[in-house]
Write a protein that binds this DNA or RNA. Sequence first.
DNA 1: AAACCGGCCATTTTT
DNA 2: TGGCCGGTTT
Length: 739
Amino acid sequence: MFTPARDLFADLTPDQRAAVEHGEGPLLILAGAGSGKTRVITRRVAHLLQCGVKPWSILAITFTNKAAGEMKHRVDALAPGNKVWISTFHSLGARLLRQYADRLNIDRNFTIYDVDDRNKLVKDALDRAGIDNVKFTPERLAGAISKAKNALQRPKEYEQQARDFFTQTVARVYTLYEKALRQANGMDFDDLLYLPALALKLNEEFRAELDARFKYVLIDEYQDTNQAQYEIARRLSLHHPNLCVVGDPDQSIYKWRGSDIRNILDFERDFPAARVITLEQNYRSTKAILHAASVLIDHNKQRKKKTLVTGNPQGDPVRTLTFDNGLDEAEGVVLRIKQAVEAGRFRYRDHAIFLRINALTRSLESAFVKHGVPFQIVKGLAFFDRKENKDILAYLRLLINPADTVCFLRAVNEPARGIGKVSLERLVNWANEHEMTLTAACGNAARIPEIKGKAAAGLREFYRLMTELRAKIDLPPHEVIREVLDQSGYRKMLAETGDEDDADRLANIEEMITAAKQFHDEDATRTLADFLEQITLASDVDSHDEKADSVSVMTLHAAKGLEFPAVYMLACEQGILPHNRSIESGKDEELEEERRLCFVGMTRAMRELHLCHARMREFRGQITYQVPSMFLDELPADVDRQDVAGGKNTARAAIDEWRSGYRSAGGRAGLPPVKPTIPAGDGSGYAVGQVVQHDEYGIGQVTDVSGFGALRRVKVRFPAAGEKTFVADKVKLRVVKRG
DNA sequence: AAACCGGCCATTTTT
DNA sequence: TGGCCGGTTT
């Protein structure tokens, strides 16, 4: 090895340094929360490059695309212009499947099926197999299929070990689903791991080639890998066992998704020569926070003891806050944040609010808007989940993959072309009989005797349209989308109604076109297919904008890997955290995962940590008494426990009072949730979060800015009048306070 | 073929 | 509470 440049090590501790410096051979880094593991992986990649390792022989796997992007950025700063592969497991899988499509005997133009698409396909399979007398939902069956794939069980293998009625049903559906998926040339999320893993397992030539190609493999968050991912990691490291994994068993929170904590616990068994480095020095949190989190996690029985230490100051005590009800909690937290900012203690972006479940974001939104506090809800696909965007995406996917049945069925009659349910059913049957894709059958519509009149004409028109558009798929992504929007009649459908909502929808599609343009501007070699893949594989945190000065709201799962100066964890109540599902399961294992989840949330905090709960909470229209989380009881005695319920008690009569107060204060009922948009530096003068004044409606807060030029709309939520949409160019709004 | 309505249902976390 | 499905009407 060459003598490495000084600067790579200057700011590292001896343990970190050892991990970075480690040469050949397997390496396990047990990195406690906040111990700088990302830095270690990044430096290690840079170090390998400095030692003369070829960039293309390094493969680094992260948990999110965002983390991959950041690592790429940092590695590039340390070793400019390198070609190291840095991606998530899923992106890696997609890339391998496309690159080696011919050898693996698959069509490289496959489309990636998200959970919705998958469930639809499972439902179809169910209908076609005539399995509707059973109570198993498509989601549940799809979940079981997903598990099977994670465990690398093919339909036949699964069938052989299916013993009870449920698993036998799953076996039948699995077989049908796989067939449908392959016919549609689709890959579900699990396939992106499962197929490469199987190929590596069954095809030694393929395995050896990739093993030799990726001589150094580094994997972050190893405690959350599932069996398929494990298989990939291990089989890429047989001849060149330079596998470096980093993880923390205390932060394993994805067991429900098939991850297996044994992967990290058994690493030394899998690689007896492995060197183990433990990082226990925490650089993130105050002593108070670290102590509280350590005491909590110590309640887990199935755990290898580990003691985190920090040289940071003691800091403020960890605080628990007791509120009377969920609305008070939301408002109380927002106000506390606002005060902290106004007092100059923190900026908005220093704050994060963590939730166990997404459903809890609603009341928070109202509170944020009410008090003019800027916020972002970190929930990735919300924008692309809108109907209009999904419709356009269906066209795009169908252009690239004509076999995509789910997209065909979505696009074919949107806008309406007179093709109804019955005609489509006939088309699907005919296609199945003739073993054709729906697109091909559509081209043969004239030969299908049962389809006539308007439906036949509509299908003919749709086929012509798609053929025409397909000639343009090599244009830059945003141009293809514009062609689709114009040629398909979708724009016409939205433009001619004069409906305000339709104008909004059009503006949303225009926004997607802008996103595609940005995507293309960043790197002109990227295609439409790349754009679609990025959208599908995006994670929630990928949409997190840490530059915006707003409070971040996200689930505990999304919070992994992040850090914030001040953290609020809401609804620390029995049934929510830990979640009912885990309590009801009666399994310690599941309860311990909830505790780890709580631990992950707590250890995100650098300086202030507030754990909140309410005595009453409305859920699904029902008001229930809530019991504080058992985890709050498990915290050390030096935690500052504050009851801020303001004298309100828990007597029965109080419920009705509270309810009537809630109802009358609920003038905002029925308002759509605020779209989490990044305040755009787009020259419109308006940005989400701003407080503005309107002549008629008074003071309100901007909740959305969309569209461009004459199409630009600004959405404002008024306390009294509710949400209104204005044409930005026309409306007179005075900006009272910047967001 | 498409819009409309009413009852039913489920309720975690995500690449 | 609200989202979805299935039935009914236009």
